[in-house]
Design a binder for these strands. Sequence first.
DNA 1: CCGGTTGTTCAGCG
DNA 2: GCGCTGAACAACCG
Length: 244
Amino acid sequence: MPEGPSIIILKEAVSIFKNKKVLHANGNAKIDFKKINNKTINDFKSWGKHTLICFDGFFIRIHLLMFGTYRVNEKKDAKPKLHLAFKKGELNFYTCSVQLIEKNVDEVYDWSADIMNDKWDEKKAVKKLKEIPDTLICDALLDQDIFSGLGNIMKNEVLFRTRIHPKSEVGKLPLKKRRELLKEVVQYAFDFLKWKKAGVLKKHWLAYSKKICPRCNIPLQKEYLGKGKRSTFFCDNCQELYGS
DNA sequence: CCGGTTGTTCAGCG
DNA sequence: GCGCTGAACAACCG
């Protein structure tokens, strides 16, 4: 379900409840639901993979993690983590992390780190990358403080498209290549969004979950790389290794 | 039916 | 107290 683009789709789907009052809130989440009852939703925002339901003086943070789902004006069989009832309609979130944070979102989030936000700042990302020259690029891309919203699918696709080997070291990328990668991160995020909306995301995958390199027709490698040992698909022939 | 996973947090250890 | 590692959690797909 959830890389940044999927959360943009979520945000758009739930926006029908913007400026609507929550008549009743409940669920399995360990939060004080009374704080939400009879409060009006000012806005829905997102920061990377975080969905933010904004009220006066506080907000709800929802993270779908790996298996989270949601329903608008529908229920699933399972009891929701968070259920919001409105005068007309309802919103349900399942198998997700739910937190109530008594701050304004602007106090908490650096919007310039979100690859899909209007405030995304490539220069700040470059600065952060310069601080971690020894990190593998496959790990750096998944760092949510640098590339908020970027997930494992996007990691694989962006590296394949820019022909950068996942085991390359951040500090060894030539400037031109680093710039190309940063552009592709944003480009691919919006391609992902467009394709996901059209229901054609998977057929655009070039490397992720693939067995054969679409460029050279030789078998792709699959290894569990990086700190999180995340599945990584790459072509030893056409993705260049920078560094050792 | 089993294996795999679009993610994160936290306990435990050195 | 730090950083690192692996476990734990979860539901659905093929």
